[in-house]
C-alpha cells in the first residue's frame, strides 16, 4: 500500500535558446544603450557609456528607452535595436 504525492507546480514548456556570440573587440562597433527607466538607470548608463566610449571608440552610440522598467521592451523596439546595433548595454539603477 502506498500513498500519492501530487506535484502542484505544472509543466513549463520552454524552448532553450543559445546566447549570442560575444564580439572579440568593441572598437568600431555600434553600441545601443537601453534605459529601463528605473530611477537612476539613466545616470548609471550615461556614466558607463562615457567610460566605454573613451576606451573603445564606437562607430555609433544610440540611446533607447523602455516604456516601463517593469515590462518587457516592445517587440518593435527590440527589432529596431537589433537592426541598428552590434552590442547593447543595459542596466537597472534603483
Amino acid at each position: 500500500m502506498t500513498l500519492e504525492l501530487f506535484d502542484p507546480r505544472g509543466v513549463v514548456e520552454a524552448e532553450a535558446r543559445a546566447l549570442a556570440r560575444r564580439p572579440a573587440a568593441l572598437a568600431g562597433l555600434r553600441l545601443g544603450v537601453l534605459d529601463n527607466t528605473k530611477w537612476n538607470a539613466n545616470r548609471l548608463l550615461r556614466g558607463a557609456t562615457a567610460k566605454l566610449r573613451a576606451t573603445h571608440g564606437f562607430a555609433a552610440v544610440t540611446y533607447y528607452r523602455k516604456e516601463s522598467f517593469s515590462k518587457i521592451a516592445a517587440p518593435e523596439l527590440v527589432d529596431e535595436i537589433a537592426a541598428a546595433n552590434d552590442v547593447v548595454l543595459t542596466a537597472i539603477g534603483d
Partner: peptide, 12 residues
C-alpha cells in the same frame, strides 16, 4: 500530473 508514490504511513 506526476504523482510520486510514497510509503503508507508517510507524514504527507
Amino acid at each position: 500530473v506526476r504523482a510520486d508514490a510514497v510509503a503508507d504511513g508517510t507524514d504527507l
